[in-house]
Design a binder for these strands. Structure first.
Lengths: 230, 230
DNA sequence: GTATGATTCAAACGAACGTTTGAACAGGAT
DNA sequence: ATCCTGTTCAAACGTTCGTTTGAATCATAC
């Protein structure tokens, strides 16, 4: 390994990662066996442990190779907006568009498997597996902090806790929108599949509407939604 | 002889269901073994297959016993509103409150395990397992249809497809809000723990804001939009 | 050519999985 | 006491899991 970089085999690594990405999305981590992965990738069973060390390490690598790029693009989009603003606080819509627009752009990318990964990622936000969630949290720590700070500055009069909640809600709506297209079909069988290009404006309208909604009156005084069914 | 194994008094069935509910929520379906379930429940390994037939049947029963009640309450809440309206279309806020308010009421129920189940349910909306999703779709078919019809009548000028999407987004925000509290903590370590009573008004404001947001321009091009407000 | 290190391969490993078995135990009703 | 029915129990079933092994193959430098 003199000057050669991490370039290893011909394309065994990449084929394993691509196969695993699809299978993890379709069946989940636990239900996807090494034999399924290596079978679909057309490589030997031992190849995964040789190239990645273990199944868990393979899972991490599946996420890392995409998340690195995704979060880099997110930060770039945010910094581009900040450069335009020149020190002034950004408009919330710009911040939201920077974060979620990058996500949806990858969702629309069908040629490089980005769409598959985004669906996998959406499912993984609620993944029970502890080490997967721990890994995701580390990967997200910086970018989330940066966006939250931008939102704090953009909405100085809104309690930070409230902004945190709404960001949480927005993440949920996006994850579900991307990952749960099948679930949507289950709700309404007569539903023609859509290209993610049309999902983007729909989701963005919804997210901004939720973000700008009036604060709950609970801030002033506890109030319960009237739902008396007698 | 060494230890007096606490002779279990109450129902073995219920003990298995309660243990399985917690373990499924913590580890997921595939990662939760029969031995974990029976061990936590304090029953024999064979008890699950004796009482439920199989692990899959146990999963279904875990959901069925709670979903039956949940969806019954949802329909009751909707019908109560419809009775008050007396034939007139309901306001969207009432419909949303009927559907999601019941969910959050169960989330706030800590004494009967309802909160545990709601977190499990939130995670399961994006569950890859095919038979689980099929089962969920059947359980939800009627109640979703009823609520969608109510929304169609409440918003006659909004394209049905658009309402479907926004309902989808709302489901995502709620599921994530309930199931992903840990994820929220990962984003912001300094976060005082959740009190579902306070989650309710927060989420409701967000959902209604998203539901009433202006439609994306792409849709507006072809249709005139009227904004109904509550 | 041969040597050397990286990669692939078939085969096997022990562990854990869901499920099944047949005996043991319980408590009424006859 | 006996039978019956429902339930619990320890043990084992066959399968599949992730991982490991050691030899075969390939590529490149000597």
């Amino acid at each position: 390994m003199s000057e050669a970089t991490a370039k290893q085999g011909p394309d065994t690594r990449a084929r394993i990662l691509d196969a695993a990405e699809v299978l993890f999305m379709t069946h989940g981590f636990e239900a996807t066996s090494m034999r399924m992965i290596t079978g679909q990738a057309g490589v030997n069973l031992a190849a995964v442990n040789y190239h990645f060390g273990s199944k868990d390490a393979l899972i991490q690598e599946v996420f890392r190779r995409r998340l690195t790029e995704l979060n880099r693009d997110r930060l770039a989009a945010l910094e581009a907006e900040e450069a335009v603003a020149g020190g002034a606080p950004l408009k919330p819509s710009k911040i939201v568009a920077a974060f979620f627009g990058v996500s949806l752009k990858m969702t629309a990318d069908t040629t490089h498997g980005g769409a598959t990964f985004m669906r996998l990622l959406g499912r993984t936000y609620t993944e029970p597996n502890e080490f997967v969630r721990q890994f995701l949290a580390e990967e997200y720590a910086e970018v989330v902090q940066r966006f939250m700070d931008a939102l704090y500055r953009a909405l100085p009069d809104v309690p930070r806790e409230e902004i945190l909640w709404r960001f949480h809600f927005m993440m949920g709506a996006m994850s579900y929108a991307i990952a749960g297209t099948d679930a949507l079909k289950l709700f309404a069988g007569d539903f023609d599949d859509e290209d993610p290009t049309r999902l983007m404006p729909r989701l963005m309208s919804f997210l901004l509407g939720g973000l700008r909604a009036p604060l709950p009156e609970e801030v002033i005084e506890s109030r319960t939604i009237r739902r008396d069914a007698a």
